[in-house]
């Protein structure tokens, strides 16, 4: 995949398929430490131990529509290409955490890309799921929690046109602050 934000969108699809109701996305761009960490956690059904060890194997999937499972394998490959790695922690009934890290300055590291597009896609298509987003860039932080937004909306659907429009603007500004800001 061309962008890390596309990997994130894809890995979150696994959480959605596992019937998660709360999904957290954590990104830490630690420039000084030259390390990029991406962590995706969910409260879905989890992965049985015997399956866990095959999980980043490109030929492993529990889907029936295609022979190969690719998402985790692709993400792991991207990380390993950049002096990084990917780890999956999970237990049945305990949810799943996928953690990938990259050497930040590695020449092969894909760009973050359109994080806003990824977040808007997730929220627009999954109004019933809650997302917690935490993004750190060089020590500055951006948090977003759809539960807080829903509380403010008082019953109005989070994926209505107008609300999505507002969210787009809100996320744009927050990311501009994070990346540019006063720095």
């Amino acid at each position: 995949m061309r962008e890390l934000s596309l990997h994130i969108l894809d890995i979150v699809q696994n959480s959605i398929s596992a019937d998660a109701t709360l999904i957290s996305i954590y990104i830490n761009e630690d420039i000084e430490g030259d390390r990029l960490t991406i962590k995706i956690g969910d409260n879905g059904r989890g992965i049985p131990e015997d399956k866990l060890m095959h999980i980043t194997d490109p030929f492993y999937t529990t889907r029936k529509t295609r022979e190969v499972g690719l998402g985790l394998a692709l993400f792991a490959q991207a990380a390993r290409r950049c002096e990084g790695d990917l780890q999956v922690d999970s237990g049945v009934g305990e949810g799943t955490v996928v953690t990938a890290f990259f050497s930040y300055s590695h020449i092969d590291r894909p760009p973050m890309g359109d994080i806003k597009g990824t977040l808007i896609s997730l929220i627009a298509l999954n109004p019933g799921i809650d997302f917690m987003y935490k993004h750190i860039y060089g020590g500055k932080k951006f948090f977003l929690d759809t539960r807080e937004i829903k509380r403010e909306l008082q019953g109005i659907e989070i994926n209505q046109n107008e609300v999505l429009g507002w969210l787009r603007g809100y996320i744009s500004e927050a990311l501009e602050d994070l990346y540019g800001g006063e720095g």
Partner: peptide, 28 residues
């Protein structure tokens, strides 16, 4: 309905979805 499997995402589903949402918003 948009296909959001790995293959769909790799092929540009996110951008297609953004275009759909924007058309829906624009045309109410």
């Amino acid at each position: 309905v948009i296909g959001m499997g790995t293959c769909g995402i790799a092929a540009g589903a996110r951008e297609v979805l953004q275009a759909v949402l924007q058309e829906i918003e624009k045309r109410k």
